[in-house]
Simulated scan of single mutants.
Amino acid sequence: MRSKAGTYGGLSLAQRQTDRRRQLVDAALDIWGEQGWAAVSMRGVCAHARLTDRYFYESFADRDALLVAVWDQVRDETIARILRAIHSKLGEGPMTQLRAAIAELVEHLGDDPRGAALLFGEHTGSAALEQRRQQTLQQFTDLLVALAQPYLRPGADPVELRMSTLIGIGGFVELINAWRAGILATDAGHIIDHTARLGEVLAAQYLAGQ
């Protein structure tokens, strides 16, 4: 129902546009999680969201723009979850914080297969997603390196710290992919314990008192 100028059903034009964009992103995430990114199409997303084509182009220039928006949303939510887990353990030492971050991520991926399919799935064939994947790898590396700074021993080599962090993250991605594919017959708790122990091994040469 239209009320004052620019509003309909109690929502402004900007609010309705925001809602429609959210519907499109959620629809794309549903399709992506079930069938992979290549199955995401403008028409399929619009049909899933029950919106017409014109509303797609209200928010996105093309399919790549939508795919990137979906990726960014899941990445940002994932980073926020990790930071909350880390902050909940402030004052308990870097290894406790790292374990909390690993546990939060592994458990969340188990509960949210859509997000797991997006961040850990195959992106070959999409230049936009491959660029986002590489950027995200660097963002997670930057995050862990920055969080380690207060705990580093004097003279810790920053380049080697970054290399070790990249190795750790890359290995973790492959571990999760193998787990999701059923190659590893184990559970989330075992993944968390093993990854946390390896994190301690990698961190020992850089952290004070390790």
Rank of each mutant, 00 (worst) to 15 (best):
M1E: 10
R2I: 14
R2M: 07
R2A: 14
S3F: 12
K4V: 11
K4T: 14
T7F: 08
G10L: 12
Q15C: 02
Q15K: 12
R16P: 13
R16W: 06
R20C: 00
L24Y: 00
L24W: 01
A28G: 04
L29H: 00
L29C: 02
W37Q: 01
A38E: 01
V40L: 01
S41R: 02
A47P: 03
A47T: 10
R50T: 01
T52E: 12
Y55G: 00
E58Y: 03
R63C: 00
A65C: 08
L66K: 00
V68G: 00
W71H: 05
W71G: 00
V74I: 08
A80R: 14
A80L: 06
A80K: 04
R81A: 14
I86N: 07
I86P: 01
S88Y: 07
G91A: 13
E92F: 02
M95L: 04
R99V: 06
R99L: 03
A103W: 09
A103Q: 15
L105C: 02
E107Q: 06
G110P: 03
G110H: 08
D112P: 05
P113R: 07
P113A: 09
P113L: 15
G115W: 01
G115D: 02
L118R: 07
L118K: 05
L119V: 09
L119M: 03
L119C: 01
G121N: 15
H123M: 11
T124N: 10
G125V: 11
S126P: 04
A127K: 11
A128V: 06
Q131V: 12
R133N: 13
Q134R: 12
Q134D: 14
Q135K: 04
Q138R: 11
Q138E: 14
T141W: 10
V145Y: 03
A146E: 09
L152M: 09
R153K: 15
A156K: 13
A156G: 05
V159H: 02
E160H: 05
L161F: 10
R162M: 08
S164F: 15
S164G: 15
G168K: 09
L175V: 11
N177E: 15
A181H: 05
A181Q: 05
G182R: 10
I183M: 15
A188W: 10
I191V: 15
A196K: 03
L198I: 13
L198Q: 12
G199L: 01
E200R: 11
E200L: 05
L202V: 14
A203K: 14
A204S: 13
Q205G: 13
L207E: 10
L207P: 15
A208Q: 11
G209A: 04
